[in-house]
Design a protein around this nucleic acid. Sequence first.
DNA 1: GTAGGGTTAG
Length: 484
Amino acid sequence: MLEYGVLPNKFTYPFVLKACAGIGSLILGKQVHSSVVKIGFDSDVHVGNTMVHMYCCCGGGVEFAQKVFDEMPKSDSVSWSAMIGGYARLGMSTDAVGLFREMQVSGVRPDEVTMVSVLSACADLGALELGKWVESYIEREKVPKCVELCNALIDMFAKCGDVDKALKLFRDMNGKTIVSWTSVIVGMAMHGRGSEAVSLFEEMREGGMVPDDVVFIGLLSACSHSGLVEEGWRYFDSMSKDFGIVAKIEHYGCVVDLLSRAGLVKEALDFVQKMPIEPNSIIWRTLVTACRAYGELNLGESITKQLIKNEPMHDSNYVLLSNIYAKSFRWEKKTKVREVMEKRGMQKIPGSTKIELDNEIYEFVAGDKTHNHYKEIYEMVDEMGREMKRAGYRPTTSEVLLDIDEEDKEDALNRHSEKLAIAFALMKTPPRTPIRIVKNLRVCADCHSATKFISKVYNREIVMRDRNRFHHVRDGKCSCKDFW
DNA sequence: GTAGGGTTAG
């Protein structure tokens, strides 16, 4: 078009920019951007909005999106939504929420699309108080509750730990789509309420809703988190037989997890070897986790060594191998793993725990001393340790990666981010109120055990979200039934 | 005649 000397008009560019967003090419997007500037349509709000969106969809483009957004002569709710949504999709949830606060100051009225992205950011952060505030904001400002917004609310409540509220919203909403059903089923799965997920799926079918591949991922993961092996198998078969859905790697992954958690390690291995798609490293790691839990240490060792060959810079492979050696008391080998990691200049991704108190999100990492009240927090951690031991807690020192003596290992465990966050919560919240924390990784065996003792000793319900699922810990027992 | 949004294995 440009070569023919035909000038695009302001209606042309949004289409072109949308195409760039679809391709995700930053280079192409920048070319179109310069053409927009040359012709002088960079002052048109529609063009600018699509440009923000385009940059958000191209790898490495958020900064450019923010720049375009900042320099727009005029912005409306679409501009703000594009930018907030961009941050939310990239997992830059704190930035998304921060921008929403700026939006409120700017005087531009958020609409239902804006709120969907804000809720998605809350869900990612696991920030229940913030999420509840957003819900009340939606009510107060009378933001229309379209289906997508209801779905986002359901997803947010489930991911922030209040799955009963998610269920209630689901029950009360009109015009449920497959996404609504999926959100609530995935919610149940995360909270270990597998049989309710199964009932919901059956109810969905009775209503005539046709399942898709995504809802099956939710359903299968619900079965595996609740040990429903029979049901899981049945649904996996039914998926292709009754609904013509071709199983993807995620579905195979769910089945591997289903068998693994149930202790059927040989069957899981057999399944992996026979599956028609090339297994990925996620599948192999699932299997190794089961090997560790069920004492198949030689198998676990050989798979993990292969994983390290394939992905030498992936820290969790080394952590798995180290844990397998600890479990079989092969301390020299364990030390060796640590040395290899150091030699390759690798560090374990630091575990962190977030907690929301008085409208503020606090984040702790192991051994954190950046917090204002860290001295009091460590005193509380020590007190917690004494109380827990009195109640029968024994530290699980074998999972400490470092090669230090037992006492230091115990010390290292006590400085894990979960324990710091819980100590802080015990100090700052009224007795008997639930404590909600969000971990970025899988919770370690020692913190899991410690949490159970703390719930009993301090008479607190502890709701803990880790990378994979929720743990509702109450009176010394956890909803995951100690398999996670 | 143009623009932004919801669910997905571990």
